[in-house]
């Protein structure tokens, strides 16, 4: 759906995007992660033909951004990071305005607007003035606006920024629903936990350069590999009357299924990094129990997207 090859863009001396290459397939929900000023918004503006690239090519739905802007605009729904609204229009008029701009026939507009309002849960606010809506509702209206012409690709720049936790959850479920509808989504954010739950793939960008692109699972895998192991990390917490973790560490150290063991007497935990993913972890319990350890809890440590981001970006641009 989206294919980017060697895209670069500078604003004066600032290189906003440096040789970006990226592929996003149909139905994919792509999370674009990076700190502020990394180049996420610039990429989205380039893909929606709002600015021209200095070098490189990109195509959306098979249309080149340099030569076929009209076709791209019909296939892309772009929601900017700061949603400006016409404060003198009602929700219905606002959506009609954009429906007319996308040349949707008058007869079809009411049905289309009704369905996008339903999808974004704004039916009750249909005749309210746009300016009177809360921030969360305005963001949902922004999503409704980009859905009016039923685009195949959605470019959503920080759709959840400035929203309260409830509105964030609502926005997340709305985007998941859009993913289920088969639309390709490119969602940028610097709040990583948000993307982890809805994206099928991610791209990490910093100072205009793409540091990582691929599936979330692969990102976790790489993060683990950077920690010295390929397998999961098993976290064992011991009872208060159990021997201290540092004395039990030796019972696991010699095993070839174990990459490394870290014991912490302070919080009575043992972190066991396994060499290969997906192998049985029961042997850890057996070894510790044989050494006199009394296990309070046992689990797999979850790698957060934050950890993956930090590990994958550390030193990359040094």
């Amino acid at each position: 759906m989206i294919s980017i090859k060697g895209l670069s863009k500078s604003f004066g001396p600032l290189k906003a995007l440096d040789d970006l290459t990226l592929e996003i397939g149909p139905g994919e929900v792509f999370g674009f992660i990076g700190p502020n000023g990394a180049g996420k918004s610039t990429t989205m503006k380039l893909l929606s033909c709002l600015i021209r690239p200095d070098a490189g090519t990109a195509s959306v739905c098979g249309h080149d951004i340099a030569g076929d802007a009209g076709a791209i605009r019909r296939n892309v729904g772009y929601m900017p990071d700061f949603l400006g609204v016409y404060d003198d229009l009602t929700v219905d008029e606002y959506l009609q305005f954009f429906a007319a701009a996308f040349k949707i026939p008058r007869k079809q507009r009411a049905v289309t607007i009704g369905s996008v309002l339903e999808l974004t849960d704004l039916v009750e606010k249909r005749h309210a003035l746009v300016d009177s809506l809360s921030r969360g509702m305005q963001q949902r209206l922004g999503v409704a606006r980009v859905l009016v012409h039923d685009p195949k690709v959605l470019l959503l720049d920080e759709p959840a920024s400035g929203l309260d936790p409830r509105a964030r959850i609502e926005m997340r479920s709305l985007l998941l629903e859009l993913g289920r509808m088969g639309k390709s989504l490119m969602v940028s954010s610097h709040i990583l936990s948000e993307l982890a739950e809805m994206c099928t793939s991610i791209g990490i960008i910093e100072r205009g350069r793409l540091l990582y692109s691929g599936s979330i699972e692969d990102a976790y895998q790489r993060t683990r590999a950077m920690g010295g192991s390929q397998g999961e990390c098993v976290v064992v917490t011991l009872e208060a009357d159990s021997p201290p973790p540092s004395t039990l560490e030796a019972s696991l150290a010699g095993d070839d299924r174990v990459a490394s063991v870290k014991a912490s007497d302070a919080d009575r935990t043992l972190r066991v990094h396994l060499t290969t993913p997906g192998i049985s972890r029961h042997f850890v319990i057996e070894r510790l129990a044989a050494a006199g350890g009394r296990i309070a809890s046992f689990g797999i440590e979850e790698i957060k997207l934050e950890d993956a981001f930090l590990k994958l970006t550390t030193g990359a641009l040094q």
Partner: peptide, 27 residues
Amino acid sequence: TPVAAKAAISAKAPTSRAVGDRPVLWR
């Protein structure tokens, strides 16, 4: 705030107008 005032106004507004085929001119 002006927003609150607009909310009050919008509560009174029962319907929206139909937008023409030239949206910028219409607005």
